[in-house]
Simulated scan of single mutants.
Amino acid sequence: MSLSGMVLLHPQQAANIIILFGTVAIIQLIVSFAIDDENLSYNGRQIYPYVSVMLVIFWLWTEGLDKISGNLRKPLVNLLASGREPGGNVRSAAPSLEAAGGSTEEIFIKLFLIGFIYSVLAALLMGASLTEVFKDSSNRLYKQGERIAFSSSSLNFLVIYLTAGFIAIVGLFFVYILADQSRQYFRHYSFMMVIVTVLGSLALAQILKIVSRNISRRRVTTAVSILFIVFLLFSVPIIHISPYLYQESEHVPESQMKGFETAFNHQEEGVQFVFIRSTTSRYHDAIIGERKRIDYTGAGNVPYHFSEEGDLRSQYEEETYLVVTNRDRTRDRDLHRGVRYTREDYEHFDNGKGINRIQDNGGFTLYRITPPPE
């Protein structure tokens, strides 16, 4: 039931689970029917019936949802299309990050350092376990008389299962990277890190077990405690979006919601909304829903650094609403340091010709732009 529930809650993560468990099922079948080695005998429960049921539910659920099936097909379409450059979104964001005072190296350290350390530990355990699989049973890896890699025990079978499943998911992850689907491949990365965390912890336990033979247990425990405190100090700041990552908080103040609600309720028919960063359509879906549909054709962001080009109203041919929130002002002025919109751009809203402030509650400001006479 839990596997079926995952299909309904998050089909993309359900696809990761299907790949993981599907790989495990294949290994179980190989071990049960193809390998004649008593050290590799397996008497556990086969999971392929459960995987098969989950796969059927996944297919039935996603087949009728165009958005989900489209998201699954899009990476393959982009991968086969010419002109796609892997990492294009990252390269396009690098100049903005540098202009805001950061760097890709800094962001990598903040976001991925701990994960990278665990990945190295997990890779060591994966490599040792895979090496053991392909060795002769009489030539296995031992350390001071104790087997530390793959054996017929349930724990080491688990390592092999997770290793094989991880390799399969990595293949899907790289498909998304090569297809330049930046909004998607980090979802697969997060699932991969679940496996890495488990295997990295097992590898760390093995290393500590070996080290404790030559160093007192008290010293090892102290060193591990300090290590995890350092890991925690690096990990906590990235749990939530914050200026530490050069991103604003996702918190939406009540004044902003109330401002959008008032604007929607008093919107003149046929007048479009444009915005700085706070996408109007998302607030409409949250506040109005299906009760009143708004045509957003042509609506979008105000042009970047528009004040350098002169009059903002010359950008529009018809009457237009302009939404500006305090989050927008703080984000551009203090966090992003004018990468997209400068202080002069915001001053233009109050000083420019043909731009009239028609609503302001302290956290939300609505302007009406009147195009210049022909």
Rank of each mutant, 00 (worst) to 15 (best):
I355K: 03
L55F: 15
E106A: 05
V7G: 00
R91H: 11
A14W: 06
G362V: 06
P372E: 05
H284G: 00
G171P: 03
R147M: 12
I18Y: 10
G83L: 11
E308K: 14
G362F: 04
M192L: 15
D332Y: 07
V302S: 00
F108H: 04
F174N: 00
G115E: 09
D334C: 04
I107G: 02
F173M: 05
S225A: 15
F21M: 09
L204A: 15
V77M: 11
G171W: 08
D285S: 12
L3V: 06
E317W: 09
V302C: 05
H10N: 14
V324K: 06
G88K: 02
S41C: 03
F174H: 08
T279R: 15
Y346H: 09
L124S: 08
I169V: 05
Y50P: 01
P237E: 06
K67M: 15
S249C: 00
L208K: 01
R91P: 02
Y161M: 03
T221S: 09
R282C: 09
F58C: 01
V302L: 13
V77D: 04
A99G: 07
S152V: 00
L208E: 02
F112I: 02
L3K: 03
N78M: 14
K258Y: 11
G363N: 02
Q28G: 05
I30A: 11
L233P: 04
S137R: 15
S4W: 12
L162Y: 11
H251K: 15
S103C: 02
G338Y: 07
P373S: 15
R183P: 04
E268Q: 14
T23M: 04
P371D: 06
I35H: 08
G200R: 03
L322D: 01
P49D: 01
G259C: 01
S190T: 10
T297M: 11
G338P: 00
E38D: 12
R291A: 13
V196M: 03
T262Y: 15
I294E: 06
E250W: 10
L208T: 07
G300I: 05
R327E: 14
A128C: 06
N326W: 08
R357F: 08
T280G: 02
S32T: 15
Y48C: 07
G102V: 00
F306D: 12
G101Y: 10
Y346A: 05
T163W: 01
N214W: 14
Y246S: 00
D311E: 12
N326V: 12
L335D: 01
V224M: 11
F273N: 04
S154M: 14
V194Y: 11
E146L: 13
T279D: 11
L76M: 13
S41V: 08
H240P: 02
P373T: 15
L245S: 06
Q28A: 01
F228C: 01
F273A: 01
E38L: 13
E248F: 05
L97E: 04
H348L: 12
K292W: 09
I177V: 12
L312H: 03
S235F: 06
D345T: 01
I17S: 11
L76C: 08
L155K: 11
D295N: 09
D360N: 12
T342V: 06
R329F: 13
R73W: 14
E269Y: 07
